[in-house]
Every structure is written in structure tokens, then in C-alpha cells.
Simulated assay, not measured.
Amino acid sequence: MELWIPITIAAAFLQNLRSALQKHLQGSLGTRGASFVRFGYGFPLAIFYVLVLRLAVGLPFPALNWTFAFWAVIGGLAQIFATMLLVYLFSLRNFAVGTAYSKTEPVQAAIFGFVLLGERITFGAVVAIIVGVVGVMLISLARAPLSWRNILAALTSRTALIGIASGAVFGISAVAYRSASLSLQGPGPIMDAAVTLACVTTFQTAFMLVWMGWKDKREIVDVLKSWRSSSLVGIAGVLGSACWFTAMSLQQVAYVRALGQIELVFTFMASWFLFHERVNRTEAAGCLLIVCGIFGLLFL
């Protein structure tokens, strides 16, 4: 098994854990505060990770450059706004469906990867990705009779548009992060990914602190008061990001994000067991299609 596969599965699990914790916090901190904790409580761990790789493992620091800085800023800003869209989405639909809407990302990531990086994917992988996206759309239609009219309504609803926009901006951030990591040309993908993660999360924390201080300083106080639960979001977020960054340094973004749709399997488990939200047969069928798409991606 190629190394990027288990790393991506771990990233998907950690991302689902982080999203579940953010949904829990959204009610008390609001969209901006619940989004900030992902970065604010995560960046010290990201810096510590880099220091461990340097001091304990002996990996040298890669040389930073302006290309890296450009893509890191683009990716960091895109991830901030994608996260805010996703957290807001949780207040409109249940946890599983809210996450499902954002999972059109692999197709959008494939398009951005082709346009920005010139990356191409095989026909079999395209079919597997489409199968997974069909599963996502089936989940989004699970609460209404299946018809062309309902499909159009589902795709143009406010919830769907926010979810698709979230997926698009996450796709941009993923391609930007891969570009940033590859531009370092350092000792290897692990250190390159770690440095990218540390720089990006530090920038995101500074950016959001300035934004929150300008808009409403009370948000910062609320975030500090909720440090016990917020720190868990930060830990899960930075560990998940470390896995994503490493996987995307090893493999094309479209493949990594398509395999990452396995997160929906974890999402349905969290939706059922943690939030006690009911999952119907159509949503289960959509989840099965996503799993089929994942297996197709791995073996086609």
C-alpha cells in the first residue's frame, strides 16, 4: 500500500473529529470564533512538530522563498473562508448532510490542479470521482422524492450553494498548499509539509486575531474562556492538516481529496452516535456510493 493512502485516511478521520467538535462549539462561539480555534490552538503544535523533526529526527529546514509565501497566503486565506462556510453550514442542515455538500471538492480540486499545476488524472480515476460525487448528491436529496425538479432545487438551494462554495474554496486551498510545499524542494515531503503547516497556521492565527479584534474583541475573550474544548479542535485540526499536507506532497490533490471522501463514513457514524441525528436509506446508499468511488480510485 502506498504511504499516502493510510495518511489520507487518518487525515479524514481527524478532520471529521475536528468538524464534530466545531459543530459543538458553533452555538457558543459563533461562526468566526468556532473557525478560529482550529488555527489559534493548533499553530503551537505545528511549530513543535517542525522542531521535533529538526532536533530529534535531524531533518534540515528547507529554504523559504517568495513562491512559497504566495501560495501559503492564498491557501491560508482560502482555508479560513472555506472553514467559516462549512461551520455556518452546520447551522442550516444536520452534521452529515452539511459535510456531504462540501464533498464536491475532489472534482473542483481536480479542475484547479489541472489549471494551476497541469496535473492530469486517469479515466478510471475520473469515473471513481464522479461515482463519489453522485453519492454526495444522493445524500443531499435524501429528504425529498428523487426527480429532476428536486435535483435542480437541491443544487440551487442556499444550503447547496454554500456547501459547493465551501468545497470550491477548500479545493483552491488544497492546490495552493501542494504548490507551497512543492516549491520548498527541501529534504523530503514530511519536513516540507510540516514547515508549510507551521507557516500557514501561524499566518492564519495572526490574520484572524486582527480580524476578530477589529470586528468584536469579545470573540477573543470567548475563545480563551472555552480553551478546554477549543484546544481539542486545534489539536485535531493541526494533526489532520499535517496528514493532509504530507499526503498532498506525496500524491496529486485530486486523488488525495477523492480518497478523503471516506470522511463521510466517519461523519455518518458521528451524526448517529454523537448528535443522534437520523440517517435514512437514501443517505446510506449515498454513503455506499462514496465508498465504491473510493475503492474505484484505489484499484482502477
Score class of each variant (00 low, 15 high):
K23F: 12
Q26T: 06
L29V: 06
G30F: 04
G33Y: 00
F36L: 01
V37S: 03
R38D: 01
F39I: 01
G42K: 01
I47G: 03
I47E: 00
Y49V: 05
L51V: 08
L51K: 05
V52D: 04
L53S: 08
L53H: 11
R54S: 10
L55N: 12
G58P: 07
L59G: 05
L59M: 15
F61P: 06
F61V: 02
A63C: 11
A63S: 15
T67G: 14
F68Y: 11
F68V: 10
F68D: 06
A69W: 00
A69N: 03
A69F: 02
A69L: 08
G76D: 02
A78N: 10
Q79F: 09
I80H: 04
A82E: 03
A82V: 00
M84F: 06
M84C: 02
Y88Q: 06
Y88F: 08
S91N: 02
L92M: 14
N94H: 09
A96L: 14
Y101R: 08
S102A: 14
K103V: 09
P106F: 03
V107F: 14
Q108H: 10
A109E: 07
A109S: 13
I111M: 14
I111A: 15
F112W: 14
F112K: 13
G113R: 11
V115R: 07
V115Q: 08
G118W: 14
E119D: 15
E119I: 03
R120G: 09
T122Q: 14
F123W: 06
